[in-house]
Each structure stands twice: as structure tokens, then as C-alpha cells.
Amino acid sequence: MSTLGFTISEDQEQFARSARDFGVRRLAPFYKQREREGAFDRDTLLEMGEMGFFGVELPEEFGGLGLDAVTAGLVLEALSESDFNIGQLYVTMSLAGTILAKYCDPEIAAPWLEGLVRGEYLPGIGLTEPQAGSDAGKLAMRAVRDGDSYVLSGEKNSVTFAKQASFALVWARTGTVESRARGISAFLVPLDLPGITATEWEDIGGRAAGRGTLYFDDVRVPASHLIGEEGRGFAQVMQGFDYSRALIGIQCLAVARISLAETWVAAAARESFGKPLTSHQGVAFPLAEAETLVHACRLMCLETLWLKDNGLPHTTEAAMCKWWAPKLAFDVVQTCLLTNGHGGYSSELPYEQRLRDVLGLQIGDGMAQIMKMVIARAYAGRETA
């Protein structure tokens, strides 16, 4: 088991405060508007890029700040309090960016990473398929070498930013079906290549992000756009998910924390039977319990990021973050909605949108059952769990 050993410095706190102030001014007032429009405001993303909010952990050679994962998590948390979907973009940028920076040819990766850091380019993650989600070893999409290109054929489902992304990291089978995960390779694919079409789904939440399907009809991708070694793509993405799962935990808990902060104030201002609502244990105790659980889960997520920064194993802890934090956040936001009474059930307050948005991450990036299997194997062994 890991040992807790991180602290939050004043510099980290200051960066997070800057992100939180920006979120209150520039993100929160337009949270609902972005949902109605079903897209991000590109001017806002460019402004965020200028302020250094994207690519916090990416190397400076690619335009990033070269900071640690804990700092990236704190900035993500501050932004997600104001707009959960901006947080989802941040997580996807971190996942795609760290994979490209570590495994892709630097000359090929540089323009895409620099555009990502500036807020010009949105990335997509092309892993899930109609019959292959958690079991990524079953991927059916093919990538066939043809001279100095690979030809990609198939489809990718549940791609966030499907119609807004400039490029995607796409995983396809270069080996035999029998090779399963060992036959999977990863590619950097510009989404304006001939043969690529995108559709968008009608989701109940996360509408600003715009999840959808990417279709690849004999798409020719330069061989130089292979990420890492052929046949090693599955291992690369699994390592990336250890990071993104901890970030997702922070992202979801940010929504729970801000909902609790608002609800304490609202409950104290309302009276029932001549007393503030918070004087009634039936109101105050559920909120107190929620604060306790959120505090504990947040510490676990931050510790997981600290383990990553120190080069220590964190796969099990990341799985704990991923299954617990989205479920906990959903439950806490629901509690806050109910505590706010008939007003909480209205779209005038943000709880219904937060509830729908956070629900999606009980599915995306690995369902709870898969996360618990990862944890069980760590404690009981792969053969017995």
C-alpha cells in the first residue's frame, strides 16, 4: 500500500486560485449556454490557453508548463467547479497530451501539442467500438501498412468532441485477432483527412462536449503518425488511463464540493418551523456526511497524482478514484438538489445539469465493475479474482 506524503504549496494554491477566479468570471455564467449550443466557445478556450490552463503537466518544449500532476489536478478542480464539461476537455487534453509527448515522434507531435496548449486544437480519444469497450483487446478496427502509410478502416464510438476535435488518438488492430491486446497500435490522426466522417449523439448530459461516432473509410495515415511501437498501443493507453482516472475523480468531486458549499449557504438562509434548515439534523447530517466522504475521496485522488509524480505504482489507486468519485459526486449532487427543495428541481439552479453531466463518467473511461476487478486483482491476484 502507498504512504501519504504530499503537501500543497503556496504556488500551487495560487495557480488554483487563478483558475477558480477565471472560472467564476468566464465559465460559470455560460455553463447552461454552452449546453444549449452544444459546443465550446473557441474564444474562451484561446483565452484559457493564453493563461496557461492547458498543458500544465506537458513538457515546456511543447508549450506546456512542465509542472507536476498534482498541480494539474488542482487547476482542473478549480475550473470544473464552474463548468464540468470544460473539465472534461481538460482531462482529455491531459490524457492525449501525455501519451503524445511520451510516445510520439516529437517532430510529428509538436504542432498538435502546441495547438492543444494554446486552446486551438481539441483532441478526441478513439478507443471504444460498438463491440469493444472495456475489453479493448477485442478491437476490430484495422490498420494495414501500405508503403509509407497505414490504411484505417472501421468506426469508433463514444468519442468525446467527435465533431469539434481537430485530431484524435486512434487505436486499431495491426496484428491478428488472436494476438488480442498485443496486436493493437495507436495513431495520431488529423480529422480532416479524406474518408473520415463524424456524427454526434443525443446524450442526456455532457452536451457541450458532444459525444459521437467517427467513421474511417480507408483513411490513409502517414506511417510517421504511428505512436510508439507497432503492437504496443494497448499498453500505452492503459498507462495513460492511470493518470486520467485520478483526474476524473478530481473533476467529479469538484462538482460535489461546489454543490455542497452552495447548499450550506442556501439551507442556512431558509427557515422551517422558525429555525434555519441547518439547525435540523435531518438536513445538516446528510450534508455533514457528504463533506466527510468527499474530503476522503479527494485526498485519495490527490495522493494518486502524487504517486504518479514520484514514479510509484498507482494503478490500483487510480481504479479506486475512478469508480468511487463519479458515484459519490452523483449522490452528493442529488442530495444537494433535494435539500434545495422545489427550487433545486428547477433548471434555474445548476444541480439538474450537474447531475446529468457527472452521470456520464460512471460509464466513460472504465465502468465501476471493471475498476473493482482491477482492485480485486491487486489484492487477491489475477488468477483468483
Rank of each mutant, 00 (worst) to 15 (best):
L260Y: 03
R36N: 13
L253V: 12
E35L: 13
Y31D: 12
L113K: 01
T263F: 02
L361Y: 12
L116K: 00
K102N: 13
D365T: 10
K327I: 09
A319D: 05
S82C: 06
L226F: 04
I99W: 01
L95H: 12
D68M: 06
F40N: 00
D242S: 13
Q12S: 14
T292A: 15
G206T: 06
L152F: 08
R34V: 03
S2G: 07
A376R: 09
V70K: 01
I258W: 02
Q251L: 15
A162Q: 00
W324L: 15
N310V: 07
R26S: 11
V255P: 00
A186G: 11
H280Q: 10
F30R: 06
C252M: 11
E348K: 08
Y351H: 08
N340E: 15
P29A: 07
S224I: 06
P190E: 02
G210Q: 01
E37Y: 05
L139E: 02
A69T: 10
L287Q: 09
L58I: 07
V91E: 09
E81I: 00
E120M: 08
I258L: 08
K163A: 11
Y379T: 15
A101K: 05
Y215M: 11
W323N: 04
T92P: 04
K275S: 11
E50H: 07
A110W: 01
L312N: 12
E35I: 09
G381P: 10
G133P: 00
Q251S: 12
L355Y: 04
W324N: 06
R270K: 15
F241C: 09
V151F: 06
G64M: 01
G206N: 06
Q362L: 11
S346E: 14
E107V: 12
Q12K: 15
E13C: 07
R36E: 15
Q239M: 14
G55S: 07
L191I: 05
V221E: 02
P350T: 07
S347N: 14
I250C: 14
A209N: 07
F216E: 00
D11V: 12
G233C: 06
I86A: 03
A254T: 09
F241N: 08
Q131R: 15
T304P: 05
A39L: 08
V24P: 01
E289Y: 13
G97N: 09
L299G: 11
C297Y: 03
R257Y: 06
L67Y: 02
H295Y: 11
A223G: 10
A376E: 14
A165I: 03
T384A: 15
E271C: 13
L305W: 07
I86D: 00
S149M: 11
T160V: 08
A325T: 07
D21I: 11
G124N: 05
K372H: 12
T7H: 13
D41S: 09
T292F: 14
Q239C: 09
A181M: 12
K275E: 11
R377Q: 15
A261S: 14
A246P: 06
R382N: 14
H280K: 08
E60P: 01
A385P: 12
